[in-house]
Design a protein around this nucleic acid. Structure first.
Length: 664
DNA sequence: TGGTTAGTCGTTTTT
DNA sequence: CGACTAACCA
């Protein structure tokens, strides 16, 4: 196996004498290093798979890594291997150690929508901007491991004090719901490790070798987790690339790369500089752009995959034309090069940019998959069903209670709910518990109380059945009992309702499969859903479809032919980042985008764009001027010419027909 | 109590 | 232009 590696990769795999940092440029085979090292640890170093943990940043990456390790060795020897995200690992630790922190093992994981709702309630405002900023500031406090009490003490202004108080209420509310948020999944285990030497020792002994992927994206708490778990032995390999650090806004700190050298003086640094992904021109463009950033570590990427075609830079007249142009160029290229749809990807800065592309792709009947963006589990219909399941798993989950009890409508309205909420809040109990309290029964009339009681009894029956019966069966009967299908068709036009019901059925199928394949009961399945962003097991490779993705979500992926759209000032770099002086991170984003491409890269931007119904003139991205002139082919204003002639739908069809005629 | 409607507002990135 | 909300009516 080792002969498949280049000398630097092999050195990284074989180095076991202590902490190891692998600086891996884009496309330099870092996943290969990690998977091979797992195999090496088990086969050559004689380690038990149960003592090895590989940590990634996305579930998708974890899944892919699992698959690739599976190709390297037999399943029995991989039993007990941990390949998961920081958050999943944190959850696992927390479920096992919950009692040390005052939580029950079946705590819920709150999504950001629920978190935002708590904040908006405590803040007493509906101002989206305000809530957003409060949520993110509280999240920053949490990743910096500042407790509510300390935040109150440290507050230097009226505003900070207010925020700290909101933070405290928020945290108390989470505890009351028996829920944690994403930050807690990392923070609480770290807190526990620091307070409880025995628990720490237990996990140190369990996880004896750590492999951390995308190390440049760790925040300080995640770094502490690594440090605590490996402090005694320093047995870990961190793989990262400072040029691909694009999550600073989420607390990721490139300083963690430098800190590693300070905290572990014996740190062994290995650089991977050969790129196995892209042709030379693409790499040259990427290098040229990133050269405008100050460097943390010096490294030069090279490849021997040939020079490749020039990078195309095209100005379009509007968003519609951009979408149309991309669709046309794609179809033309596909026919000429005889490729598949899945060889193409369209990348963009913000999720909203996907919509217009989607319409163009649909009119041309181009199959596509969208990764990143709204998760399947975030759809309203799925969240409705999920609310029931969350409540079954944890009856203290008040947000789930409110959603479930009002969907479908069952005669419980705002007034009743408010009374119930007030009663529960007074006594520090959950909505669910309050329903069964003598004191509450007298507060509402029988006509209002009855549906509540019926609802809670129903949930109670499910709680009994969930651990005892197959997950799919219980879920099916739940949907039957609440007649969710009818409710969907009653509350929507037939067409969207049909789509929604299809999603629900897909969800049921997924749950059934999870139950059968992994032997999990309904509650166990629900407990992990909050962490899953994409429907796993949906074999995306089998479908021949073009991939659409945000630049952030595209990290770690590669495609033969890439379109990078919307390369305009205020989009990439984004206006807020320009204002906040964060252009360097945006440049890294551009770098990530360019380095996704293996063979061809087409960059587009619009001359004007409709924003909030108004036409707005736009400027090409400053990053385009950083591309080496000899490696790009420009059409449009950058070249001094006119914007690329717009292609209308009929023109497009004619062009396609001509192309097809020429080919046959 | 629940659904409809007319007005409002405004677009980063995600575990 | 379209999503999302707050007042309004059945």
């Amino acid at each position: 196996m080792l002969h498949l590696l280049n000398p630097a990769q092999r050195a990284a795999v074989q180095y076991l004498d202590g902490p190891c940092l692998v600086l891996a440029g884009a496309g330099s085979g870092k996943t290969r290093v990690i998977t091979q090292k797992i195999a090496y640890l088990i086969e050559k170093a004689g380690m038990d798979a149960r003592n090895i943990a590989a940590i990634t940043f996305t579930n998708k990456a974890a899944r892919e890594m699992n698959e690739r390790v599976g190709h390297l060795m037999d399943a029995p020897r991989l039993r007990g291997l941990t390949v998961s995200t920081f958050h999943s690992l944190g959850m696992r630790i927390l479920r096992e150690e919950a009692r040390h922190l005052g939580y029950k093992p079946q705590f819920s994981i709150l999504d950001s929508a629920d978190a935002g709702k708590i904040i908006s309630d405590t803040l007493g405002t509906t101002d989206k901007q305000l809530i957003r900023s409060a949520v993110s500031r509280i999240s920053t406090l949490k990743t910096d491991r500042i407790s509510p009490d300390r935040a109150i003490l440290m507050a230097e202004s009226e505003g900070e004090l207010h925020l700290a108080r909101v933070y405290r209420i928020y945290q108390d509310t989470l505890m009351a719901y028996q829920a944690v948020d994403f930050d807690d999944l990392i923070r609480l285990p770290v807190d526990l490790f620091e307070q409880n030497a025995e628990v720490l020792k237990k996990w140190q002994q369990r996880l004896r070798y750590l492999l951390i992927d995308e190390y440049q994206d760790t925040n300080i708490t995640q770094y502490l987790m690594v440090k605590l778990l490996t402090d005694i032995t320093g047995q870990f390999t961190a793989v990262g690339d400072d040029d691909q650090s694009i999550y600073a806004w989420r607390g990721a700190d490139m300083e963690n790369l430098r800190k590693l050298q300070v905290d572990f003086p014996k740190l062994h640094v290995i650089k991977l500089e050969q790129n196995y992904r892209s042709v030379a021109r693409i790499l040259k463009c990427a290098n040229a752009v990133i050269a405008n950033n100050p460097k943390l570590f010096e490294k030069t990427l090279w490849s021997d995959l040939g020079i490749g075609d020039p990078i195309q830079v095209v100005e379009c007249k509007s968003e519609e034309h951009e979408a149309e142009l991309v669709a046309m160029k794609l179809l033309a290229h596909k026919f000429e090069a005889n490729t598949s749809y899945k060889d193409y990807a369209i990348l963009y800065r913000g999720n909203h940019q996907a919509r217009i592309i989607e319409t163009a792709l649909r009119t041309h009947k181009i199959p596509y998959l969208i990764s990143g963006g709204q998760s399947f589990f975030d759809r309203a219909e799925i969240k409705d069903v999920l609310a029931y399941l969350r409540l079954v798993a944890n009856e203290n989950d008040d947000p789930a209670f409110i959603r479930a009890v009002t969907t479908p409508k069952r005669g419980v309205g705002n007034i009743t709910l408010e009374r119930l909420g007030a009663y529960a809040a007074d006594r520090q109990i959950s909505f669910f518990q309050a329903v069964y309290e003598e004191g509450f029964i007298w507060q509402v009339q029988a006509t209002q109380y009855e549906p509540l009681k019926t609802f809670c009894d129903f949930i109670g029956r499910l709680q009994y059945r969930a651990p005892r019966e197959p997950a799919g069966q219980v879920l099916n009967e739940l949907l039957e009992a609440i007649d969710y299908e009818t409710w969907l068709y009653d509350s929507d036009e037939p067409k969207p309702a049909e789509g929604k019901w299809k999603n629900v059925l897909e969800f049921v199928q997924w749950v059934t499969r999870q139950g059968e394949e992994k032997g999990k009961d309904l509650i166990e399945i629900v407990q992990t859903i909050a962490l899953i962003t994409m429907l796993e097991g949906r074999d995306e490779e089998d479908v021949d479809a073009l991939k659409m993705s945000t630049l952030h979500a595209s990290k770690g992926l590669e495609y033969p032919h890439v379109f990078l759209i919307g390369c305009e000032e205020d989009i990439l770099p984004h206006a807020n980042s320009i204002e906040g002086g964060m252009v360097e991170e945006e440049r890294r984003l551009m770098y990530v985008g360019i380095t996704r491409a293996q063979r061809t890269l087409t960059i587009t931007y619009c001359g004007k764009r409709k924003r909030a119904g108004e036409w707005q003139v736009t400027e090409p991205s400053r990053f385009l001027k950083e591309l080496p002139a000899e490696d790009i082919r420009v059409s449009g204003r950058l070249a001094g010419g006119k914007p690329e002639q717009a292609i209308s739908k009929t023109e497009g069809r004619a062009m396609l027909a001509g192309l097809l005629a020429k080919l046959s």
